[in-house]
Amino acid sequence: MSRFELYSPEGLRLDGRRWNELRRFECSINTHAHASDGSSYLEQGNNKIVTLVKGPQEPILRSQLDATKASLNITVNITKFSKMERSKSSHKNERRVLEMQTALVRTFEKNVMLHLYPRTLIDIEIHVLQQDGGILGSLINSITLALIDSGIAMYDYVSAISIGLYDTTPLLDVNTLEENAMSTVTLGVIGKSEKLSLLSVEDKIPLDRLESVLAIGIAGAHRVRELMDNELRKHAAHRVAKSSAK
């Protein structure tokens, strides 16, 4: 694929977006009320992710018991059918997935008020049904939603987004094709602030461009936070209306 097609001179990307446009973002919470304490379903572009939060609950293993705070466990299951081409091997013990799990735990350890739930385990289970780029960011968004649904106390939203750098132009919310063709940055932003809880740069990126990449990234993450907040409030209003009617 030629670089020309990734970003046309008219300023259009492969899927017709402009540089600063998000993909379709749809989410719902409380989708698996029977199977979990908190759950979410997120579609960000063609990423489709189911997240289940179980807990805080009695730890299964003694090693998970911490007398001062809750233990946080995150498992990411990338299904074999999640990509266009079915993968032959399981992703379960892939280095990339293990790294992602560690990055996610680090991000949420600081944001969830784990000290309120000593001697318990919070278990987060994520199933990626379909992926199309920027997966780490989508995982963070889906975990934020499911945690809020579970009623577990946290300081603020964490919203995340991936940005690619095409020559000198940052491209917001990259898909797989863009992700494979250019350097990308994933960042997680706390609430409405400009504080980053996660920054992941996996390839080379010119330092002098980083600032503009971060600026559009933070703006994009804020928009994602807003979309999640809208959905949450809608859900909450629905629930409150339902319970006050009775």
Binding site: N20, L22, E26, N30, T31, Y41, A219
Partner: peptide, 29 residues
């Protein structure tokens, strides 16, 4: 892959055209 409780009248926010302007950053929180 929908959820009955979520599919309601107000679900028509068109998110396909999300436009992020750099100025948004300056907006006070």
């Amino acid at each position: 892959f929908q959820y009955p409780s979520i599919v309601d009248e107000t679900n028509d926010i068109d998110t396909s055209d999300e436009d992020i302007e750099m100025e948004d950053v300056e907006k006070p929180a």
